Amino acid sequence: MSEDPTILARTAAEHVAKALSVPRIDIALVLGSGWSSGADDLGESLGELELGDVPGFSKPVVSGHGGRLLAIRTASGKVAAVFTGRTHYYEGRGADPVVHGVRTAAAWGASTLVLTNGCGGLNPAWAPGTPVLIRDHINLTGDTPLHGATFIDLTEAYSQRLRDLAHTVDPDLPEGVYVQFRGPQYETPAEVRMAGILGGDLVGMSTTLETIAAREAGLEVLGISLVTNAAAGMGDSDLNHAEVLEAGKQAGPRLAALLSDIVKTL
């Protein structure tokens, strides 16, 4: 199997297109912590695969993340690929495996990408269970999925047009700047304060590398974070993964409805 990430993505796209009898997709969605339940309401199922069976993918290692690739026909007639799991940078495999799903979606024909995640919130007005549109990001991983002298404009990493469409679904959706740390440890209170000083509103361990790869591939990106907890030092309790999962479970019905309504507009 080729080690070239572009060739590997084409191989994966050809594999899933044949296995699912779906020659081309229009939209791709990556469902992060708390978002997986939304897959069931997106439209008519065209088939599904285990992600671990697709070239270049691994089974998700994080509790609360699914491990399926779904093909769905949306209410607007578009064909969507839904990844119910992702590889995280903290797994130590490097940036290319993290963005393999994005590159596969692009090779499969997608022009629009919806990235979701669960994260810590710095704004006390955003209670756990609040969805927030990502307006911009700060990548603190110290890494990039780009190779060589590849200069990609990230002035509008997260599409204003797609955020405007999301606001037609829910005009009250707040927007914020997402800050990705390397993880897997949660951020310290001092690191959270630093993120706030830099202009961040949300902190987490995913999404930014995928966005960079998506923009390289020419995809238009909509990012949505679910605030699953107050970031370290912003609340009264210690952070734990069970809290993240529970917040996602409680917010599940609202997220599913929001995601379904947004996808109808794309």
Rank of each mutant, 00 (worst) to 15 (best):
H147C: 12
V179T: 13
V221H: 03
T84N: 05
S225E: 11
I262N: 00
R73K: 15
V22G: 01
P131M: 10
S2E: 09
V263P: 00
S45R: 12
Q180T: 15
I197T: 13
S58Q: 13
H137F: 14
G176N: 07
S63A: 14
M194V: 13
D53C: 09
G64F: 03
G34E: 00
T116N: 02
A105N: 02
G183D: 01
S21G: 07
Q180G: 05
A28Y: 03
D143Y: 11
H100E: 04
E3W: 11
T130E: 03
A242Y: 06
V54D: 00
I262T: 02
V227W: 08
S36D: 06
H147A: 13
P145N: 07
A257C: 02
G199D: 03
W35Q: 02
A75C: 08
L146K: 13
G77N: 05
L255P: 00
Q185L: 12
G109E: 02
W126F: 12
V203Q: 06
G66W: 09
A242F: 09
E48D: 13
L219P: 00
N117Q: 13
L20M: 13
R68P: 00
G43Q: 11
A217T: 01
I197R: 14
V132W: 12
E156R: 15
Y89F: 15
L266C: 08
T207E: 00
F181P: 00
E187C: 06
G204Y: 10
S37N: 11
G223L: 10
R254Y: 06
V102L: 13
L113T: 01
K18N: 13
T6A: 15
S159F: 11
T116R: 06
I197Y: 14
I7Y: 04
G56S: 09
A13E: 02
G199A: 09
Y90L: 02
H167I: 03
G204H: 10
A251N: 05
A125V: 08
P145T: 06
A242S: 15
V114N: 02
D53M: 11
E220W: 05
H167E: 04
V203N: 01
E246L: 14
A12I: 15
H167C: 04
D170Q: 07
S58N: 12
E187S: 08
I152A: 04
I7N: 09
T116M: 10
V177H: 05
S45D: 03
A213Q: 04
L113N: 01
R10M: 12
N123H: 11
I27E: 00
G120W: 03
G118N: 06
S237A: 14
I152V: 15
I224R: 04
G142L: 10
G32N: 03
S37C: 04
T168S: 12
F181H: 06
V227T: 12
S36W: 02
W35E: 00
G52L: 13
L31C: 06
D201R: 08
L115Q: 01
E156S: 10
Y89M: 08
G118P: 03
L173F: 03
P97L: 09
A13D: 03
D53E: 15
L198I: 05
